[in-house]
Amino acid sequence: MVGPLPHSSDTDLLARCRADDQDAWKILVERYAALVLSIPRRYGLRPERAEDVLGEVCVALVKALPSIRDGQALPQWLIRTATRATWEAARKDRLALTPDDMPPLTGAAPPDETVAALEEEQRVRAALGRIAERCRKLLTLLYFTAPTPSYDDVAKEMKMPRGSLGPTRARCLDKLRGEIEGIPAPEEPS
């Protein structure tokens, strides 16, 4: 095991979970709950139903712990299992969920490009969670807020001179890109 538990790799956390380490499980859940919840939410399930999907995925993951040893495979596994659980929840509730930005739910595995896009989203989500709060706030104001605020508004919100935004932005973007690239890339679909 390398480093403190919160910074452990997924492979390490999975190994600790197999050894019945509840702290490791909690960190895995905190790391991936947003990814799993994002799938039923994007398909339009109500919040309580989306939470049920998370619970079901977690139950399935506990059962699958002996067979998932490579942490790099975990995001894909979670995406596919959450999509399946969302489909089952929709079928049980007799809901037809057809959002514009997601493929139709059919009970089959989601297309590789959807899995890849959700993995990319998870890398960005995780990277944003790792950078300093001030950088996260600045980048969120600059790029991740709609409608996009003006530079003057960003400077005011950040309580910094407008002229400092450019250099600070560059440093924060470097940190974000470093964190995104530091997270292992997904395996090629087989």
Binding site: L54, G55, F144
Partner: peptide, 18 residues
């Protein structure tokens, strides 16, 4: 991806409990 991630509500207490 960033816009979606930053717009997400945090997992609820019930979600974490489950």
């Amino acid at each position: 991806a960033g816009r979606r991630a930053m717009a997400e509500p945090k997992p609820s207490r019930r979600a974490m409990k489950l």
